[in-house]
């Protein structure tokens, strides 16, 4: 039991210290929702919630893994008027599901309205789709939001550095992960 607890804690610690997040941008154009962009970033994912009519999920093999629900922020509330423009984008970050092939977007009726393949995303800074229109990357014609921000801030290769640091972190965490897996296996076999 102690071994199993240690293994569980080790797994949690590894995932916390070396967290990655999938930053996803959903686009609304003339009444249609779609997945516009996904990028793997190092660091903590934004809080996820089961609140909202729309759902983002990962497709991994034959499974669908729910990630987060959300509201699509269409209505613009200002002192002039409450407007509902024809276009909107919303970016959130959610936990990563290792090995997932794509991200699925479900509408309020439970139907998949958009899918975005993420197999090419391997490390922090990798992205698919087009960067958010109003982001620095979108205005610079770049794909990586993180790289564009670093570039605009005068940081050499922020995404690369983050990726490298993360990779090193994973290597350092590997023994703990192996230990955790062995411990869990031992616990299961005893039972």
């Amino acid at each position: 039991m102690r071994i199993a607890m240690f293994a569980f804690v080790a797994m949690l610690a590894c995932s916390a210290v070396f967290a990655e997040a999938m930053m996803v941008t959903v686009s609304f154009e003339s009444g249609h929702l779609s997945l516009r962009h996904a990028e793997l970033i190092s660091g903590q994912p934004q809080g996820v919630t089961n609140d909202g009519p729309f759902l983002l999920a990962y497709k991994k093999g034959g499974d669908v893994v729910p990630a987060t629900r959300f509201y699509m922020p269409i209505l613009v509330l200002s002192d002039k008027a409450n407007a509902a423009p024809d276009s909107a984008e919303y970016t959130l970050s959610m936990p990563v599901v290792q090995g997932a092939e794509s991200i699925l977007l479900y509408n309020a009726n439970g139907s998949v309205v958009s899918a975005l393949g993420i197999s090419s995303i391997k490390s922090a800074g990798d992205s698919v789709g087009e960067a958010p229109r109003e982001s620095m990357a979108g205005k610079l014609g770049e794909k990586s939001v993180a790289a564009a921000v670093d570039e605009a801030s005068g940081i050499g290769s922020g995404a690369g550095q983050a990726s490298q640091g993360n990779a090193q972190g994973k290597q350092g965490c590997l023994p703990l992960l192996v230990l955790a897996i062995v411990g869990m296996a031992a616990f299961v076999s005893r039972r």
């Binding site: 660091g43 934004q46 970016t91 620095m136 993180a146 921000v149």
Partner: peptide, 22 residues
């Protein structure tokens, strides 16, 4: 965030402060 014609977007802030995850 950088000042200039590149008005920042929520994704820029999340990417810059990825360790925070606001």
């Amino acid at each position: 965030l950088p000042t200039g014609t590149l008005g920042p977007w929520r994704s820029d802030l999340l990417a810059k402060c990825k360790d925070v995850g606001g």
